[in-house]
């Protein structure tokens, strides 16, 4: 039976160990702050000139898309989703081929450029003006950077600690007490969850006040996404570290888990133009759901119903990883 006293004994001592390790604590706080502020400074000079044009409800790309240079065409099936992109300057134009209409944001300089570049292709089409403030790259990338930081802190934060405990005999000593694997793993999960949520919330607030990025949605919904996303990533870290004895191998496996997420979970760039199988694969990664949900709340003002599928995926992954992790968990006694 799950014993709360044993659970809280481990939870408390792990928290003390983390908070008293000043160097780790400072790094956990300073690194994401520097990264976000650095990104804001670097990308403050404007966006690259390449154009991004949405195509609404088109099975096949129209002929003109193959002749227009320096322009990426992205397909959309939802009018609302595509319009949100035009409104926030995330795409420069939306073309509805079926209804012979195009939408362009009158406040977007790149929208104006797109109109010139595509003038011959859309000369028969009716222009529909859209208004809305630009979503800067920094607004778009902040959920990604925070998500990436949460990922590293969750995966490596528990993965390395557990393997170190196993290697230096801390686990062996604890295993001689009546504690169960679930109580121990659960305590590690909750302790890390609290640490990551507190640090991420602090970094979020500090950078929000410093560089004033866009937050249209509800902050409590963001907190819920943060909790579920962090839980799924910590559970993944616990699963990876459940049996390993070597810190080097753990590092390798955690890198193997984190790099696909770095590249395919929409941290730095959108996967909208990527092949379908890549997008489908990305849906298997917890960070994708964390970043997509947080981003849609922050820059599209999404509500609970809009992100519920992400929350469900994150919950499902957490339960799966944690159950497997506790089942496979080894105290490292048998040689």
């Amino acid at each position: 039976m799950f014993n709360f006293k044993r659970f809280s004994a481990i939870f408390k001592s792990r928290n003390l160990e983390f908070w008293r390790d000043r160097s780790a604590l400072s790094w956990n706080l300073i690194f994401p702050l520097l990264l976000i502020i650095g990104m804001a400074v670097v990308f403050d000079r404007g966006q690259p000139v390449e154009l991004k044009v949405g195509l609404l409800n088109t099975e096949q790309a129209p002929a003109f898309t193959s002749t227009i240079k320096y322009t990426e065409f992205v397909h959309y099936n939802s009018f609302e989703a595509a319009m949100s992109k035009v409104t926030h300057h995330q795409i420069d134009m939306l073309i509805d081929v079926e209804n012979q209409e195009y939408y362009v944001n009158s406040e977007s300089s790149k929208g104006y450029l797109a109109k010139s570049v595509l003038s011959s292709a859309i000369k028969q089409y009716q222009e529909q003006a859209v208004e809305g403030k630009a979503v800067r790259y920094v607004d778009w990338v902040v959920p990604g950077i925070l998500g990436m930081n949460i990922m590293f802190s969750s995966l490596f934060g528990v993965g390395y600690v557990i393997v170190r405990y196993r290697k230096n005999g801390v686990l062996k000593r604890i295993s001689t007490t009546p504690i169960t694997a679930l109580e121990f793993v659960g305590a590690q999960l909750v302790s890390r969850l609290m640490i990551v949520v507190l640090i991420s919330a602090s970094v979020f607030l500090a950078t929000w006040f410093t560089i004033d990025f866009l937050v249209l949605g509800n902050l409590f919904l963001l907190l819920l996404i943060l909790l579920l996303g962090t839980m799924s990533l910590i559970s993944l870290g616990l699963l990876v570290a459940s049996r390993l004895q070597s810190e080097e191998l753990t590092g390798g496996l955690l890198n193997m888990a984190s790099w696909p997420m770095m590249l395919l979970s929409g941290v730095w760039f959108s996967l909208e133009g990527a092949p379908v199988w890549v997008q489908q694969f990305a849906q298997l990664l917890p960070l994708t759901h964390l970043v997509e949900a947080a981003r849609s709340v922050m820059i599209d003002g999404a509500v609970l119903a809009d992100v519920s599928h992400h929350l469900f995926a994150l919950s499902l992954m957490s339960v799966l990883f944690l159950t497997l992790g506790a089942k496979l968990f080894s105290w490292g006694n048998s040689r």
């Binding site: 001592s13 160990e17 000593r173």
Partner: peptide, 18 residues
């Protein structure tokens, strides 16, 4: 090995609680 950054008293309390 015992957990880092933990005092003697805290270690005793932790094991007693386990």
């Amino acid at each position: 090995a015992l957990q880092d950054h933990i005092t003697v008293g805290e270690t005793l309390n932790m094991f007693a609680d386990l």
